[in-house]
Design a protein around this nucleic acid. Sequence first.
DNA 1: TACAAATAGGATAAATTTATCCGAAATAAA
DNA 2: TTTATTTCGGATAAATTTATCCTATTTGTA
Lengths: 144, 144
Amino acid sequence: MFSKACEYGIKASIYIAYNSYEGKRVSLKDIAKEIDSPEAFTAKILQDLARHNIINSVKGAYGGFEIDKKDIQSIKLSEIVNAIDGDKIYKGCGLGLHTCEEEHPCPVHDQFKIVRTELKNMLESTNLEQLALDIKSGVTFLKI
Amino acid sequence: MFSKACEYGIKASIYIAYNSYEGKRVSLKDIAKEIDSPEAFTAKILQDLARHNIINSVKGAYGGFEIDKKDIQSIKLSEIVNAIDGDKIYKGCGLGLHTCEEEHPCPVHDQFKIVRTELKNMLESTNLEQLALDIKSGVTFLKI
DNA sequence: TACAAATAGGATAAATTTATCCGAAATAAA
DNA sequence: TTTATTTCGGATAAATTTATCCTATTTGTA
């Protein structure tokens, strides 16, 4: 569904949010360990998220990644997915047609519309706070 | 959402079904032209679909691809997707966790469940006949 | 039988995604 | 100021997906 990069990006964001809540800045090493991802590849994704102003990066000793506490609630899953994979997953045609719209639909246009809308709603209505709290309370997991 | 191979596979199946309805066997060349796909790559996918007994291939002069008329109605989109991409798209974890289940869910497990179920239902309830008829009546399109 | 038309299938190449490596730059603390 | 720590960013490599090429095989028809 999502690219590996996007999966790592979402998991990393949740882990950063969870720690930022407790005032802790986390390092790349920590993140990669906690979400079970390749370190160097994760670094690229974090850079990308930082450039998109979804997370903050702090260089140097005692540096790492964090998210402003006040922003955690307003960051939607859709922003993360958009930053990494773009919006084709819920905007593009399911069969890859260049032009796929009501007046010129692909064979599965109507059937897909429901799924795509559901996905879009889900991504746009889920925020980092909810996800981080579930990790904190131990009802959801970032790895295995 | 789907791989290119799967997109081509679905479109090709619809085109073959549509022609099989009229008793016409279609060639690889025809198919690739009508669904706007690379010929040699499409050939591999058709071989795959034939090996999965979703379509029939006939070698030699006047050969080509076809689907038994009586089968067209019972072939579900899910079978085609399964044959090419496998079932991870609606069975696997949205964040790539190896183990993601009710007792050990990933952070977006619940949110994803809805989308995945919707996708699964859609793929399992849509058959080639419906899709082929819409192409025939000109309300849907296989390319552009 | 010879020929032409098609698919089958192996080998290979191109493109994209995923992953690694390493030196540069920044920064806090000693 | 020096040092240790940590992210940044460019180069490169590995893996996967997408795409191409060429020969073999099958089959209908003249």
